[in-house]
């Protein structure tokens, strides 16, 4: 769906503050994937996702969306933007219309869709993020923090992109607000078959959500694999300034003490399942 080929991005190239944020990255995001993108601040993840929908142009290398090359005269940029929806950090700061409806409709209106289709999409997006339809007539500024965040995400979903990229969608939300948004994202991913790229600093969120994890460090893809593989490499993650979920540390310590547990356990339910097996196993040995 999205393919990056030898992509490099350098800020202020040739100037005294030249800095390479993304360094020769090759990465493919497939349809039907939910990819977690992690890396400490300054590792290049935000620059990387901005290149995925053509918001910025790589200094060198090529980006393809659905087989079409970006920054090529034959490719219409607006088509790419409709295909790859990008939800930035704190998207609620970008709400600007008089009503929630108009705000969510902004994208579809710019796609020149007929009115009935715009309405259908606004309602679809509203349901998809779990926003009550009664709120559509309100001013976005009257919503609570969590509702604003969801309204802003709905504005991107209303364009029905094939890939949805979210930069820290749960930052600043409380646990139930966080769970609600993550549940909605996963639901959309499963039901609408939308590919999702989720950028997060929360290892717990990534562990609970992603099928695949891409770890960025110093502008390069440092690790790429399934959650169990990635979280099984605790020392490496820590050397990149990242961490593992607490349950991974717990099971890792148990492994060190000689208990037979699989490497890279990363959810509470998985840990419960595996530890229960140990208890039974210990019983059998006696």
């Amino acid at each position: 769906m999205i393919k990056l080929e030898n992509v490099t991005y350098t800020y202020s190239e040739g100037g005294p503050f030249q800095m390479t944020a993304v360094d020769n990255v090759n990465l493919t995001i497939n349809k039907d994937e939910l990819v977690g993108l992690i890396g400490h601040t300054g590792s290049g993840k935000s620059t990387l996702i901005q290149m995925m929908n053509g918001l910025i142009k790589p200094t060198s290398g090529r980006v393809f969306v659905d087989g079409k090359e970006l920054h090529n005269k034959k490719t219409k940029m607006s088509d790419i933007r409709f295909k790859v929806g990008l939800v930035m950090q704190y998207p609620e700061y970008q709400l600007f219309e008089e009503t929630v409806y108009k705000d969510i409709a902004f994208g579809p209106i710019n796609m020149d869709l007929p009115d009935f289709e715009i309405k259908r999409r606004v309602e679809f997006a509203c349901d998809a993020v779990g926003l009550e339809r009664e709120l559509l007539d309100k001013s976005p500024f009257d919503l609570s923090g969590g509702q604003k965040r969801r309204a802003a995400i709905a504005g991107v979903i209303a364009m029905q992109p094939e890939v949805l990229i979210l930069d820290e969608p749960t930052a600043g939300l409380d646990p139930s607000g966080r769970d609600e948004i993550l549940y909605r994202i996963r639901d959309m991913h499963r039901r609408a078959g939308m590919a999702v790229v989720l950028v997060s600093h929360s290892m717990e969120d990534i562990a609970n959500m992603a099928d695949r994890i891409v770890v960025m460090n110093k502008g390069k893809v440092a690790l790429d694999g399934k959650p169990a593989e990635i979280f099984g490499r605790r020392e490496e993650l820590e050397s990149f300034g990242l961490s593992v979920p607490q349950v991974t540390s717990i099971t890792h310590k148990l492994r060190e003490k000689g208990y037979e547990l699989p490497k890279g356990i990363h959810t509470v339910s998985e840990a419960v399942y595996e530890i229960l097996k140990l208890k039974k196993g210990a019983g059998d040995n006696v």
């Binding site: 409380d174 349950v247 509470v268 419960v272 229960l276």
Partner: peptide, 17 residues
């Protein structure tokens, strides 16, 4: 609508079993 640390959640779930 809050959460507990994962260590507490793990203990809680294991106790159920």
């Amino acid at each position: 609508g809050l959460d507990v640390p994962q260590a507490t959640a793990l203990a809680f779930e294991l106790n159920k079993n």
